[in-house]
Nucleic acid binder design. Structure first.
Length: 951
RNA sequence: GCCGAAGUGGCGGAACUGGUAGACGCGCUGGACUCAAAAUCCAGUGAUAGCAAUAUCGUGUGGGUUCGAGUCCCACCUUCGGUACCA
């Protein structure tokens, strides 16, 4: 009898006791590093979506080990984050406590699936032993600038040395602002002034950036927590508030991040997303003078050739010059508009296409080429953080400028004639320039060159490369994150802690509510903040992506307390060979970790410029969100719920209330509903609705009353994230308890391609369970007799074995795990049909299936080798090889097509010459029938594939 | 809006390089075994017409390239992920 419960526990214990998956740094075997994106240990526990990628990497890691590699396959936790802090505010439970609970739950859930992680290397980012090195890397970023000549990060001390001797002369450094001063001036600067100058160069620096500030909640909100301009919790107004915060100068690495994408083996889609995120564009920086003012407006344009069509300017409403440019007459309308824009999220602002909004400042700029006075407007479609936060508007050649001009009646001058380029869109840089002074008549590319030259010779600006990529804001006004190893002196000059003072641990706290003025809760811990006379600590903490930007290196040497990992360990493991995780990390995490890795490469800590050689995106396993409709208005003091078919889902009289999926019958189907029992459970779960009315087609029901016949509250089923907030989390432990881990693993793989998103559904898991029982029955009969024998297998059994080995090996290499599961099924079906119980077939088959179903394989492996003393694990054996000689076919059945449509078949030996094939085809009865005497125009023979007769 | 992905039977999916559309599994239908059920085994199963052989249609929609298109090109529709402080 196949009893997964028994054998799985047994072998998990065995693997642990024998440290089967322990890996050492070094040895003769080539290295192979397989990494999963580590999970955030949420309170809802691991759900069935998480393991999809973990199972795939588990199979791959086992596969590679059996192919002779020394495989590093670790796991850990991204354990700093907002939800634990939110939970702490609600419950008073310390995030460290809830996080530790969640981690131990995740760990046991992961172990329950039989993964081959080397648990001795487990890490968690909230552990001081770990964040010690996150802080250390931050200090390195703080004490480095980007040298453009060396094209790498360089100690800031070298820059200071240069300033002391020569000032800014000859400096080639990546900087926020341009500075010019002499050595003498530098040496006369106050410490604060020097610090401010250096902030323009440091890779970790402090600057003013904007946050979502919610006055009512007294806190800064994540974009995620803001919906339609108000806080998701409570619906309070949210505005953009400037704050002095830490940022990382990722833009210094933009060019390398862009170029090195070519080095890695990632999907084209992912590479495209990264390239577009970096958003490199070549163009010109250009200054516009303002009429009756000293102000100059800096813009960046990729289309300097259209400057003769620039009939107005638009600034971001938050642009620094707006107050200066606003005339008294326009003050009120500008202020009203700024207030409106402050309530809008960036996504809202960019997504807005129908409604064009803006306000006139009352000032005019001078078009440097036409000399025209052009009005200066503000508009939400210009973003403060993108480019210079200001544009020259060319309504003839930009859709948004055009819409703006039409709305506000601004002039439009056509400057590019595209009649020679039919089909070209506004964005294509082609056409003939018209109405444009000295460039009239030129082709666009020539005009761009001509205008650029003119801009530079007249000192109006410079040719420039612009990136959409922005520096990464690195401060969070939160408790549950890495403290900054930074303190400020009396002049507010930031200083780094000494590296031997690390880690700077998070102090204990009882109350996790935000501090006054949007500060981190840490600000209230005054004895920690004012730790020495005249010195105060930074109270912000680092964001979620800090730890995850380098954790791949920590696994190489997880317990080192002298360095983030020893140079020997990093030299040995180099980089990650295969990295698997969700597309939701396509630009965020993957961009930041590439940036950190490159910085460490510049420091000669990592030997490779890229962290993740190959990357596979796993699709999300989605849940079904089941909800019922609650009428917003109570009637006679009672809540009323409606069955979904009675309600228009868009009707805003109703609120969707998610229902715990455990109460729902026919979950996930159009017929999903709450039966009378389901409604009763729902009321028990949400007692505030105990006297509610439930309106269904068959009648209305209320607690205590008789249930109408056929009573059903239909629930609305929507595919969405599997999350605690939707009460739709499916725990893999439940599936494992019923079917076993091997079955769960193979089922998740069987569901479909790893890259594809799909809703969770247990329909079909029986098929995999049946397969495992059939597989088992090749070894043991129903009376539990061992039936493996030493007979010589049939030719067809040998053939199917070798076909399966070939198929599975190829499928694993291309991450097509669903088709390898099918291959195993086909193989077992064939062996079952033949009643093959031959050791010669089954022994390699056990080794082949071991990466997929490690427990079953281990059990059968040990039973097969009962008599051999000192048997080791099947997972430490070799992967079976296939032999082409068993796979070659001597016959091939050609499909015979007439005009591409299959009409018959023709069995032939392989390698029959084309002419003979053609002759035989002509004689075929089907061909005769279909041609009906019409001449055959052509016969196409694809050797060993197909035949097509063209008539 | 912008960037990226996906859309194939009742369902999950297969078809890897332009070459037999629907492998494998679920479900369903019929049968065997059984007092019965479960389990197991056998057969069938894209739609339409037909007793059948067979024919026509068929991979989100509309067009195109090709001897041949699920696969390539153009336009569009729907869903999902990201959009810089969820992780």
């Amino acid at each position: 009898m196949y009893q997964p419960g028994t054998i799985e526990k047994k072998w998990q214990k065995y693997w642990q006791e024998n440290q089967t998956y322990r890996v050492t740094n070094g040895g003769d075997r080539p290295k192979f590093y397989v990494l999963d994106m580590f999970p955030y240990p949420s309170g809802a526990g691991l759900h069935v979506g998480h393991p999809l990628g973990y199972i795939a990497t588990d199979i791959l890691a086992r596969f590679k080990r059996m192919q002779g590699y020394n495989v590093l396959h670790p796991m850990g936790y991204d354990s700093f984050g907002l939800p634990a802090e939110q939970y702490a505010i609600q419950t008073g439970i310390h995030p460290a406590v809830s996080t530790a609970d969640n981690i131990s739950r995740y760990r046991s859930q992961l172990e329950n699936l039989g993964f081959n992680y080397d648990w001795s290397r487990e890490v968690s980012t909230s552990n001081p032993d770990f964040y010690h090195w996150t802080q250390w890397i931050f200090l390195q970023l703080f004490s480095h600038y980007y040298d453009l000549l060396a094209d790498k990060a360089t100690p800031i001390s070298e820059l200071i040395g240069h300033f002391e001797v020569s000032g800014t002369a000859g400096i080639q450094a990546f900087a926020g602002e341009r500075y010019e001063f002499t050595a003498a001036e530098w040496n006369r600067f106050t410490p604060k002034e020097q610090s401010d100058v250096l902030m323009n160069f440091r890779l970790a620096y402090r600057t003013v950036t904007y946050v979502n500030w919610c006055e009512a909640l007294g806190t800064v909100l994540a974009n995620d927590e803001v919906k339609d301009g108000v806080s998701e919790r409570g619906g309070y107004p949210v505005e953009k508030k400037p704050m002095l915060q830490w940022s990382l100068r990722i833009t210094a690495y933009a060019e390398r991040l862009l170029n090195d994408i070519d080095q890695v083996d990632w999907s084209d889609a992912l590479k495209a997303m990264q390239r577009n995120w970096i958003g490199r564009s070549e163009g010109a920086q250009l200054f516009f003078e303002v009429l009756n003012s000293d102000a100059r407006i800096e813009i960046f344009t990729t289309r300097p050739d259209t400057i003769f069509g620039a009939t107005f300017m638009v600034l971001a409403p938050e642009h620094d010059l707006v107050p200066e440019l606003t005339s008294d007459a326009q003050a009120e309308s500008v202020r009203n508009y700024q207030e409106y824009v402050a309530s809008r999220s960036e996504v809202d602002r960019m997504a807005e296409v129908k409604k064009v909004t803006g306000a006139f400042t009352g000032s005019y700029a001078l078009n440097p080429f036409t000399g025209d006075h052009i009005p200066i407007w503000i508009g939400e479609y210009v973003l403060k953080d993108y480019g210079t936060g200001a544009i020259m508007a060319v309504p003839s050649d930009d859709e948004r400028d055009q819409a703006f001009a039409q709305t506000f009646n601004l002039p439009i001058i056509d400057v590019v004639d595209k009649t020679d380029y039919p089909g070209a869109t506004l964005h294509d840089k082609v056409g003939k320039i018209i109405n444009s002074g000295f460039i009239t008549g030129m082709e666009v590319p020539d005009a761009i060159r001509a205008v650029n030259a003119e801009i530079e010779s007249r000192g109006l600006g410079l040719r420039k490369i612009n990136y959409k990529l922005r520096d990464a804001i690195f401060s969070r006004q939160r408790y549950w994150g890495e403290p900054f190893p930074i303190y400020y002196d009396g002049d507010d000059v930031p200083h780094a802690l000494n590296v031997d003072e690390l880690p700077l641990t998070l102090p204990e706290l009882e109350d996790f509510k935000p501090g006054a003025g949007g500060k981190s809760p840490l600000a209230r811990k005054t004895e920690w903040v004012d730790f020495a006379p005249g010195k105060v600590r930074e109270t912000d903490t680092m964001p979620g992506y800090a730890g995850s930007s380098w954790y791949h290196l920590r696994y190489m040497d997880a317990h080192n307390n002298q360095a983030l990992a020893s140079p020997e360990a990093i030299q040995y493991w180099q980089d990650v060979d295969v990295y698997v995780g969700g597309t939701e990390h396509a630009v965020g995490h993957l961009m930041y970790s590439r940036f950190w890795h490159k910085f460490l490469f510049d420091k000669a800590i990592t030997p490779t410029p890229e962290p993740f050689r190959k990357l596979i995106n796993q699709g999300m396993i989605q849940g079904v969100i089941e909800s019922i409709f609650l009428k917003k208005e109570k009637e006679n003091g009672k809540s009323i719920f409606f069955s979904a078919e009675l309600v228009d889902p868009d009707d805003d009289q109703f609120t969707k209330i998610p229902v715990h999926i455990d109460y729902v019958s026919d979950y996930g189907s159009p017929n999903s509903h709450l039966s009378a029992t389901g409604v009763a459970s729902f009321i028990d779960w949400r007692p505030e609705f105990s006297d509610a009315l439930f309106v269904a087609k068959s009648g209305t029901w209320q607690k205590g009353q008789d249930v109408p016949t056929g009573f059903k509250i239909i629930t609305l089923s929507e595919v969405g994230k599997m999350s605690k907030r939707y009460f739709n989390v499916v725990n893999p432990d439940d599936i494992v308890a019923q079917y076993g881990a091997d079955c769960f693993r193979m089922y998740e793989m069987f569901l479909g391609p790893i890259q594809q998103a799909k809703p969770w559904d247990t329909k079909g898991i029986d098929g995999v369970y049946k397969f495992l029982r059939r597989f088992w029955s090749l070894f043991e009969d129903e009376q539990e007799n061992w039936i493996v024998n030493q007979t010589t297998p049939s030719e067809s059994a040998i053939k199917v074995l070798h076909q399966t080995i070939k198929k599975v090996r190829e499928d694993v290499e291309r991450f097509s795990f669903n088709t390898s599961v099918s291959a195993f099924m086909i193989c077992v079906n064939e062996l079952k049909k033949e009643e093959c119980h031959s050791h010669q077939i089954l022994e390699p088959l056990v080794r082949l299936i071991a990466p997929f179903a490690p427990h079953v394989a281990e059990e059968l492996w040990h039973r097969l080798h009962d008599s051999i003393a000192g048997m080791t694990s099947v997972h430490l054996t070799d992967l079976p090889e296939y032999d082409e000689q068993y796979l070659t076919e001597s016959e091939v059945v050609y499909p015979v097509c007439i005009n591409g449509k299959k009409r018959g078949e023709l069995g032939l030996g392989v390698n029959v010459p084309q002419q003979e094939v053609e002759a035989m085809v002509k004689d075929l009865e089907v061909v005769q029938k279909w041609t009906e005497g019409k001449p055959i125009r052509r016969i196409i023979v694809i050797p060993n594939k197909m035949i097509n007769v063209v008539i």
